[in-house]
């Protein structure tokens, strides 16, 4: 077996490379933002002795009289209408609990899913007993945020054929702040793979289904073997997404596609190497800048 040995490379310090420009107003926990009492307290701040102090490390943002501190890395804060991907953790009475990288598990009510047999079906007691046959612990789903409760928990729905149980594919987890908000988060990439970019940082890669309408309401998964070529494309995309997130690039269809095209010169496993990551992300960044004009 061939073993590749590579020497350690010193971490590049951005502070040394002179990349530091106007990074905005940075604060750390306990720092005083303002002593002026005319401001409103937003997220990431607290009041003490008539002073407004930061409670997280991050960038200060001002909207008129409101002051917030945005941390660089947090858990997912849901908003109504977000597309999210999550994993079922628990089946309860009339609801599923779903892990969505949020600070509390999200709920998917039995009344907010499409059951097999059409939208207008009545939900009976039998449905409640058969919940585990639709979704059980460990299943992945895609859904949309329907409401945010007062304690921050999310309520979701899957009342569209776009959403539902996910079958064969690969889940990639990145920081939620790296997902760019777009009109659509479902894409069929030209390389024969589809992608769901969940706003919560969960990304689902799967082979583009041949025919899209299904009557089962999305609870039946196709278990036919996926051809090797499709699996290779998915693995390459996965490594590309990890490369982009390692360099803190925003993720959306174009950036992922450009990165995929830049990576074609390398073997799939090589995309995980630091030097190759720098290479292909640089190329991607350049193409994105060129395109913007």
């Amino acid at each position: 077996m061939a073993v590749e040995v590579r020497l350690p490379v010193a971490r590049k310090r951005v502070t040394e490379s002179g990349l530091l420009d106007s990074a905005g107003h940075l604060v750390c926990p306990g720092d005083t933002i303002t002593t002026d009492t005319g401001f409103m307290r937003g997220h990431g701040t607290y009041l003490e002795d008539e002073k407004l102090l930061a409670s997280v490390a991050g960038v200060v943002e001002r909207v008129n009289k409101l002051i917030c501190v945005r941390a660089l890395k947090t858990r997912y804060n849901g908003e109504v209408g977000d597309v999210i991907v999550g994993r079922v953790t628990e089946v309860q009475q009339k609801r599923w609990k779903v892990d969505t990288n949020s600070r509390l598990d999200s709920v998917l009510l039995l009344s907010s899913v499409n059951l097999p047999g059409g939208e207008l079906r009545r939900r009976s007691a039998e449905d409640e007993l058969a919940m585990r046959s639709y979704l059980e612990e460990g299943d992945l789903i895609s859904a949309e945020v329907q409401a945010v409760y007062s304690d921050g928990a999310l309520s979701m729905h899957t009342r569209s054929l776009k959403y539902g149980k996910l079958g064969q594919g690969v889940l990639v987890q990145v920081s939620p702040s790296l997902i760019k908000r777009r009109k659509t988060h479902f894409h069929n990439l030209p390389c024969g793979t589809s992608i769901i970019l969940g706003n919560n940082g969960f990304i689902w890669l799967y082979p583009t289904p041949e025919q899209t309408e299904e009557e089962a309401g999305g609870f039946v998964t196709n278990l036919e073997p996926i051809p090797l070529s499709d699996r290779e494309v998915i693995s390459r995309l996965r490594n590309c997404i990890l490369a982009l997130s390692a360099q803190k690039m925003l993720l959306y269809d174009t950036s992922i596609l450009y990165c995929y095209e830049a990576s074609l010169a390398h073997q799939i496993k090589d995309i995980l190497k630091v030097e190759v990551i720098e290479d292909i992300v640089m190329e991607t960044r350049q193409r994105l800048v060129d395109q913007e004009g």
């Binding site: 951005v14 502070t15 990074a23 940075l26 750390c28 960038v59 660089l72 890395k73 803190k248």
Partner: peptide, 10 residues
């Protein structure tokens, strides 16, 4: 903070 926010850009 500076390192990460420089990477993220503005």
């Amino acid at each position: 903070l500076q390192e990460v926010s420089a990477m993220l850009g503005d």
